[in-house]
Design a protein around this nucleic acid. Structure first.
Length: 570
RNA sequence: GCGCCCGUAGCUCAGUUGGAUAGAGCAACUGACUUCUAAUCAGUAGGUCGCAGGUUCGAAUCCUGCCGGGCGUGCCA
């Protein structure tokens, strides 16, 4: 809606420049493209353009003079949208929009309700977002939690921005890693049965969770598995461990409120025979060669500094062939764009994945890899806990939620975690401050946001008690919202759909967090300054109720994008 | 060595992709509850945007080179 207004004003400005040229007030070879820059303070109007500054050189005139000319031309039109047009600073043109648009904006917000913010910007383009995709070799850690929060929010954003986005989890249930998982569980199982000389194999998994699982197994079936020969046993333990650990991961995600639309298993991909076909294709393209008994892929032809192994000398695939097959499968399912959200330990893959996709004949632009950076936990003594799989210091998503739930309750634990995960740019490292998240629960920034919503709800609860029970949005006189605070709130609300598009296209959910935080600040300020329910000024009260109703809609829709609850009471 | 990310207030971070006087939260200090929820608000203080060049009307933002930190760099995924 603000977009539409900008279009109209852009056209007005263009004509103004055109007229100035034909009247020979300005000397320009061509009509420049008009663009707007954001205004930081109300004095700078609702929208602004630095166009006069840009034109100064080609028009050979001081910017302020150019701005004056444009302003005079615009004033001559009497464009109803424009209430006032100023020239300020070095030559900015500041435009104040007439109050009518504000009323129109509020009507739209109220009418659209839950749908406010939705646009058809994405034109139904299909996007597959793959995220978390943790190996089924252990519980989800905090980094996976961050990826879950970010991926979930990105899909929400894309869908609201008019794309058709899908959440997918890829299960690496084939290959060497899971074999070592089976072998590790085998070792724990035998230790459980008193075979003290057994050890976790090289590259295996040492976590407590396998000891627990071995214990469970021993209680369930005793020594039954010892009857199998070792490789059969490892295979059985592998499948069993995957099943249990995957179930655990699903449970954590469920607790965290993230629901995947599709779970794709590597085994299934392998069973289609696609990896073999891809090897054949690459062979025909001359991208493969033999060396040291292994089959190598010429990653160097795509610009990498070394080639990589596709088939190991023992005949097993590395992850390349199945991964290439998996991405081909995603494209075959009709997606226009693939987004892979990867953890910090996968940054070396990005180039490889892009190269594979290119080798398969797809435009590399259609695959987008986002790296979610490291999460460090700051414990309650202020110490940084280093999170690294290899070092074994691993804090699980469940542990984190448990700790949070102790301080706030289970319901808010998810909100707090999600907020902290989404509050930063994806590319920066994140220090998760448990002190801030837990100990001082009341100072927590997420509550500031939620409190704004709860506050708005409480106004409506009070409304009935205060002789405003007859309030109706349609009958309130919105012209009465004359203060700067009120108008700035409406302006902010109107920006929401545009913000969603920008956040979706840049895959940056943290922008929504910042936006909502600003909006909450504006509301809290307004609340303290202006009484909403005021018996002395019933008409103004009704107009303000209408404003609060709109604000509530945007807060709720915004929080929903982030997967954070909008409590009615706190 | 090479690659990715980061460097902004005491701490943790934003900064609408090149615009006007660089902003929040936490910590510190001063005020405001007989009011629709004080989980709030108003205010004070805090800055050589790592350093040095360059690009232009204009740089925290873009380019180059340094400095410092994190991560990656396997016939693991």
């Amino acid at each position: 809606m603000l977009d539409q207004i900008k279009q109209d004003i852009r056209r007005t400005l263009e004509t103004a420049v055109q007229n100035a040229i034909s009247e020979e007030l300005l000397q320009l070879d061509q009509i420049p493209e008009i663009f707007f820059s954001p205004t930081k303070t109300p004095e700078h109007g609702d929208i602004a353009t630095p166009i006069a500054l840009t034109l100064a050189k080609s028009a050979q005139m001081p910017p302020r003079k150019i701005a004056d000319i444009i302003r005079d031309q615009v004033n001559a039109f009497n464009q109803p949208l424009i209430k006032q047009i100023d020239v300020a600073g070095p030559g900015f043109i500041n435009i104040f929009i007439s109050n009518d648009w504000m009323i129109e904006a509020m009507n739209q917000i109220y009418t659209q309700g839950d749908d406010f913010g939705k646009t058809d910007h994405g034109q139904g383009k299909r996007i597959l977002v793959e995220f978390v995709s943790a190996n089924p070799t252990g519980p989800l850690n905090i980094v996976s939690g961050r990826a879950a929060a970010v991926g979930d929010a990105i899909v929400n954003l894309l869908n609201v921005a008019g794309y058709q986005a899908v959440r997918e989890f890829y299960v690496n249930d084939a290959g060497g890693q899971v074999w070592r998982l089976g072998a590790s569980l085998d070792a724990r199982y035998r230790q459980q049965l008193g075979q003290a000389d057994t050890e976790i194999p090289e590259g295996g998994y040492h976590g407590q969770y396998l000891i627990d699982l071995a214990q469970e197994l021993q209680q369930e079936v005793g020594g039954k598995y010892l009857e199998l020969d070792p490789s059969e046993r490892i295979e059985a333990f592998r499948d069993l461990a995957i099943e249990r650990l995957l179930a655990g991961q699903k449970q954590s995600l469920e607790r965290f409120g993230v629901h995947f639309d599709v779970w794709t298993s590597e085994i299934t991909i392998r069973q289609t025979g696609a990896p073999e076909k891809i090897i054949q294709l690459f062979q025909e393209q001359g991208l493969l060669y033999q060396s040291d008994g292994a089959t190598w892929f010429k990653m160097t032809t795509f610009g990498d500094d070394k080639d990589t192994v596709m088939i190991k000398s023992d005949g097993e695939y590395t992850y390349f062939a199945p991964d290439a097959a998996y991405h081909q499968d995603k494209f075959n399912r009709g997606f226009d764009t693939l987004i892979d959200i990867l953890g910090p330990d996968h940054q070396g893959h990005v180039f490889h994945l892009e190269s594979l996709v290119e080798a398969l004949g797809y435009d590399e632009q259609r695959l987008e890899c986002l790296i979610i950076q490291q999460v460090n936990l700051i414990d309650q003594d202020g110490n940084r806990i280093d999170m690294s799989k290899r070092k074994g210091q691993l804090v699980t998503l469940n542990d984190l939620l448990d700790q949070l739930a102790e301080a706030v309750d289970e319901h808010f634990a998810v909100d707090v975690a999600r907020y902290f995960f989404l509050n930063r740019t994806n590319s920066s490292h994140l220090d998760f401050d448990l002190n801030l998240a837990v100990t001082r629960a009341t100072d927590n920034p997420v509550f500031y946001l939620q409190y704004a919503h709860a506050r708005s709800c409480s106004i409506f609860r009070e409304m009935a008690e205060r002789e405003f029970a007859d309030f109706s949005f349609q009958e309130s006189d919105l012209q009465l919202l004359e203060s700067v605070d009120e108008q700035q709130i409406v302006k902010k609300l109107a920006e929401f759909p545009e913000l969603v598009v920008v956040a979706a296209n840049s895959r940056q959910p943290h922008r929504v967090v910042n936006y909502l935080q600003d909006l909450a600040t504006q509301f809290h300020t307004f609340y303290n300054k202006c009484r909403v329910l005021d018996a002395e000024q019933p008409d103004l009260s009704r107009a303000r109720l209408a404003l609060v109703a709109c604000l509530q809609i945007v807060l709720r829709n915004g929080l929903k994008l982030l997967g954070i609850s909008a409590p009615e009471k706190m």
